[in-house]
Structure formats: structure tokens, C-alpha cells
Amino acid sequence: MTLKTSLLRQLAPWSLPILLLAFWQAASSFGWLSTRILPSPWAVVAAFIALSASGELWQHVQVSTLRALSGFVIGGGLGLLLGLLTGALKTAETLLDSTLQMIRNIPPLALIPLVILWFGIDEEAKLFLVSLGVFFPIYINTFHGIRAIDKGLIEMGKSYGLSAGGLYREIILPGALPSILVGVRFSLGFMWVILIVAETISAQSGIGYMTMNAREFLQTDVVLLGILLYALLGKLADVLAKGLERVSLRWHPSYQNSH
């Protein structure tokens, strides 16, 4: 009895999406909904099976993922490096921070026309845009993470004989980590948004290219598949970032009960 109710309670949140999906499928099957507007859910599944069987899908996913990751590594790495520098060194802050804050006000996507002029529609254009988009969330959160570290802990570290390296390793980096990881999560979300736009505008491969290509041939099922893939990859990145937080912030009181 109680087992049944708890099972029901777990299933309850899923009932509405399942109902909608069933309704959607019915609407397409009975011709109430034109496939030009929205393909049936089953058609999306069929497109997925066909495209993955031919290997085309995986190639696009691979290209997009590689772009996203290399942009993330370049932009995120630079953001982390500069954030650590300006956060810890007063001279670096006065030299760099106000310049960076000014550049931050430019939305990366506003640069697209300029970027196309500079790089054409080659890989560099997308890499540049993604790196730029990823850079600022990580830079700013690293900077503020370091600034927010309890000064008493740094004083303690110094008076307990830690070297500059030891101070970084024992106190500054771990102390700034929660904030850095917030930046990572934020920039991972941003990374996909920028890549979607960049790939949609100009690309010869990747998920964005696949969907734009399909649009020309009115293959709404493939378009929808591309959209769902982006959603899935975005979710995956978020889950990974959350996992990273859980592992590296085990000491944090807000993670303590969940082990």
C-alpha cells in the first residue's frame, strides 16, 4: 500500500510529459499537425536511428563537442590564469582588471560580423567566439573567489611558515574553488549557446550545420533532433560540472550531508 503510493508519487512528475508526448504523437498521426511545423516524436526517433546508423550524426556530434571543448580549454584556461593573477597580485589588478571589465561589456555574439571578417567561416572563428564567451565567467569568478578568501586564513598560513607556493596550494586555490566552479558551470552553459549560434551562422560540419542543412530540405525531424542533441549535451555538461563540484567541495557544509 505505502509502496504503491510512493511509487505513484515518483511517477507523478512524469505523467504530464508522457501525456503531452502521446497527444503530440496522436496529433501527428491523425494529421492534425503538419509535419512541416512539427514532426511526430516517432519521426524524430526514426531520424536519430537512420542518422546514427550511417555514422553522420556521430561525426557532427564529435565535431561540435571538439569545438566546444577546445574553446572551453583555451578561454577557460586563460580566464583562470588571469583571474589567479589579478586576484592575488595588486599590480596585475591595476594593470589588467579595468581593461578586462571594459571588454566584458561587449557580448561575444555581437562580434560575429567582425569575427567572420577576420577569420572567415573557418574553425578559428568558432574557436574564438567560444573562448571569448567562456573566458569571462571563469575570469570573474576566479578573481572574486580569491578576493573573498578569509584574510585570517592567509595571515595564518603566512605565520605558519607557508611559502608562496604553499599558500597558493593550501589556501588560495582551495579557497577560491567554490567560486571558480560556479564560473565553470556558468561558462559551460554559455559555451553551448555560443557554439549553437556560431555553427548555425557559418559552418560546414557540426550539429548546427546539420540542422541548418535539414531546414533547407524541410526535414523538420532532423531539425528537432539537432535541437534535442544540443539540449542533451548542455545537460551533460551541467551534470559533469555538478559532479566535479560534489567531488572537489566535499568539505563544504552544503555538500556534507550528500557525501
Binding site: 585570517g152 586564513l153 598560513g157 605558519y160 604553499g166 593550501e170 589556501i171 582551495p174 568539505w251 563544504h252
Partner: peptide, 23 residues
Amino acid sequence: LRFMFQDPRLLPWRRVLANVALG
């Protein structure tokens, strides 16, 4: 010289033993 501060100033991200072994 070692100074034991008025507040404990333990590193929350290091386990108890690692805190004692600091430095």
C-alpha cells in the same frame, strides 16, 4: 615563533590531520 589565534582559523577544505600538519 608560533601564534595560536583567538579564532581557530582551520582550513575548512583540509581534514583535521592535514590542518595540524600544515607547514
